[in-house]
Amino acid sequence: MSTGRVLRNATLTVLALLWLVPTWLLVVNALVPAESYSGSPHWLPDGFGLLDNMSEAWDRASLGPALGNSLLYSVVSAAAAAVTAAFAAFATVVMPVRRQALWFWVVYSGTLLPLQVFIRPLFLSYAQTSLYDTQTGLVLVYTAIAVPFAFFVLRNYALTMEREIVEAARMDGASWWRLFWQIHVPLTRSAMVAVFVFQFVAVWNDLMFGITMVTSRNIRPVMAALADLQGNYSNVGPPVVLAGALLVSLPTVVLFFSAQRFFVSSLRIHR
């Protein structure tokens, strides 16, 4: 084995271990029974109180309704963003639209600014239109912020598709609508699933909009509920908070591994 390969493997191993350290600490300290927690982090398992800690977090922070809210926001927003981005990618790559590069930058520019700059105008506009503290308002926000990145991925994927497919379909009399649903969508399905997974995880993990655009406990997403657990119920102890964090992260882990083959296939160049 060459020296370069050895160094590369060693570097990747060290980076993987560094990445796993926070996860290891999360799991180990979530296992510690809350009543026996000493106040300092545990590096090795000491007892098994995970289920009790999860149950405590579930009850104290009302994680059940919050999980349902986040599931609604993540699924609807990610799906709407994927479909909207697919339409935009189809229009700017397949259809004979003028100034395609300009339209690309118009849509993609939504990722160039930090999300914090949108908080004040969103708050003011939502307060005037009665969208503040509503599920509809959060869905609209999450969909809007998810579209630019989804468009970037789907457009680049569409650029690798053969133009002959479109030309043949048009010569056979296929309309743009039929071409989109029967040819473009099936060919970009793996990329759309990958985009859905990316945006689902991003919406699920969002805290900023969940605490600034919502005040009601029955509307807040799960990350806002978890933050409330740590802030308003700090007497429960770190093991309960960590167990709650581990619990709310399970849906994203399950989704990622369930859609892994679509995620991997979308990274390959379409031929």
Results as ranks from 00 to 15, higher is better:
Q135N: 09
V248W: 00
Y73L: 04
Y233P: 00
P251C: 06
A10F: 11
S234M: 08
A81V: 05
T215I: 06
L15V: 13
S109Q: 10
T92F: 03
A158T: 09
A10H: 06
A150R: 00
W177G: 09
L51K: 08
L63H: 00
V107C: 07
N69H: 10
M213R: 01
P221F: 00
L179W: 04
L138A: 04
F118I: 11
P41W: 13
L113G: 08
P251Y: 02
A225T: 01
I211T: 15
S190R: 03
L115C: 04
A81Q: 06
A81P: 04
A78L: 07
T134F: 02
V197N: 03
L115A: 14
R99W: 14
L50Q: 09
M208S: 08
T11S: 13
L113I: 15
L255C: 08
V94H: 03
F152H: 02
L207K: 04
Q260N: 12
P148I: 04
L51T: 13
T212L: 13
T160W: 02
V141G: 00
N156M: 07
P114D: 08
E56S: 14
T3E: 11
S266H: 04
I165S: 07
R60S: 10
Q135F: 05
F123K: 06
R271P: 14
A146F: 03
A158K: 01
T13P: 03
L15Q: 12
R98G: 14
S74G: 11
L20N: 12
T160E: 13
T23W: 14
R170N: 09
R155D: 02
V264I: 15
V193M: 07
L51H: 11
V253H: 10
T92R: 00
V193C: 06
P239S: 09
L226D: 00
W181A: 10
W58M: 14
P41M: 11
L247A: 14
A202V: 05
I119W: 07
A227T: 01
A259G: 05
G244F: 01
S55A: 14
G137F: 02
T23R: 09
P65C: 02
F257N: 08
Q260A: 12
R155L: 04
L246M: 15
M54W: 07
M213H: 03
A144I: 08
T84I: 15
E56T: 14
T160D: 12
E167H: 10
L113K: 09
E167K: 08
V139P: 03
D206Y: 01
